[in-house]
Design a protein around this nucleic acid. Structure first.
Lengths: 211, 211
DNA sequence: CGTACTTTTGAATCGCATCAAATCTGGTGG
DNA sequence: CCACCAGATTTGATGCGATTCAAAAGTACG
């Protein structure tokens, strides 16, 4: 994991953080497989993903991994603010740039700056809604339903509802809670049926259909 | 839904809210089947559940319901604070007492009182972690695994890990994302195997076993 | 006492997990 | 440039567990 002191904060981060916190950010470069933090460690940094892809995953009893969050732009594990130890693991799936903010500074700023606290709260509320949508998705019974739900819910590339596959279909599969084989088969069949279009690492709904 | 003007706030609520907000609370009594709010309405009240049981559910395309949250003590749909319209429906499963706080007042207090804002943030972060745990649970493949995970994660009655069934096994089933028949069968088999004990509407793990 | 709902058991079917194997891909080093 | 490797992608076959439909028995409530 490389360090790059001279920071150029992305717009999303610059408009959220108060000025005094922006100077506290440390830029990181991570490559595939890097751990941003690991289980059961006391959280010291809040990580913002500027580019690339990071998954937040939990480890089951048998060691199987469950993807709880895929982040391409935003914070990883916002809830770790008030947590004694990480409950999850953050792994880089696609190389990119990240910014680390000392949690202690962040907490101080939240108390001192009500406007910032409200912006932070809005962000956390968005994440809450995203997670509720994910629960709804995981309650769907078939792989096709889950996939279409994901594209309709999270796909916001340009006009059409679409989903980027840059992180690989496997990370999508574990986000959907299905085996990658089942996902490949469902994608193939939906493309065959003309429901989905696949091109340039992008998956999009070709026509409004309910399966 | 009945109104009871003279409010006696529960401890959990009294220690969270600042004094000026406590006088703004309206107490409600709801019975089974009551809607605390419905879909696509602009949120005007934040609801706190003091007793009874409320489920927050989303309606799927085919009209099937998905339980996103079961609340016996706490706020329903905290994220609706900054939302233009409700994305879910809140239904009373078991009669109880509720408190309604005007969202506008709540927002004002959050901006004006940094300490309150931090307490609120801590609560929302807990809900975030709870939802991540639920996603993890829904990724488990068998009903038995999901049930045991639920008991281990949320069951905190007294000493032993246990789960209250007062809301009915059906609401538990939809929270687990399985059919109620499958849940009945799994419960029966786990009891038969001696893994679970069932008595007085309580389900608890009798010995530490992994299935 | 009747109605509505929950709880429970049964049988048939279907979709997914799993194991296996072949192909394809990008990246590394000789 | 090619050989090679690790990982992703894809297709096939099999078995299991859950869904679904069905029906009976138990329970709460007016």
């Amino acid at each position: 994991m490389a360090l790059t002191p001279p920071c150029a904060l992305p717009q999303a981060l610059a408009s959220l953080l108060p000025a005094e916190l922006q100077t506290e950010c440390t830029q990181l470069q991570g490559k595939r497989g890097d751990r941003l933090f690991t289980l059961h460690r006391k959280p010291a940094w809040m990580i913002f993903v500027a580019s690339g892809e990071v998954v937040l995953q939990r480890l089951g009893i048998q060691g199987e991994t469950v993807v709880v969050q895929r982040v391409r732009q935003g914070f990883v594990a916002e809830a770790s603010l008030h947590s004694g130890s990480y409950h999850c693991e953050a792994v880089v799936m696609r190389a990119g740039d990240f910014f680390a903010i000392p949690i202690e500074r962040l907490t101080q700023a939240l108390v001192a700056d009500p406007a910032f606290a409200m912006r932070w709260l809005v962000m956390v509320n968005q994440e809450l809604r995203r997670l509720r949508a994910q629960c709804e998705r995981l309650c769907l019974k078939t792989v096709k339903e889950r996939l279409l739900h994901l594209i309709e819910t999270e796909g916001t590339q340009g006009e059409a509802r679409s989903l980027s596959l840059n992180g690989g279909l496997k990370s999508v599969a574990s986000e959907l809670g299905v085996s990658h084989e089942a996902l490949y088969r469902s994608v193939a069949e939906l493309v065959r049926q003309g429901v989905l279009l696949r091109s340039h690492g992008l998956l999009q709904i070709s026509k409004p259909v309910q399966v």
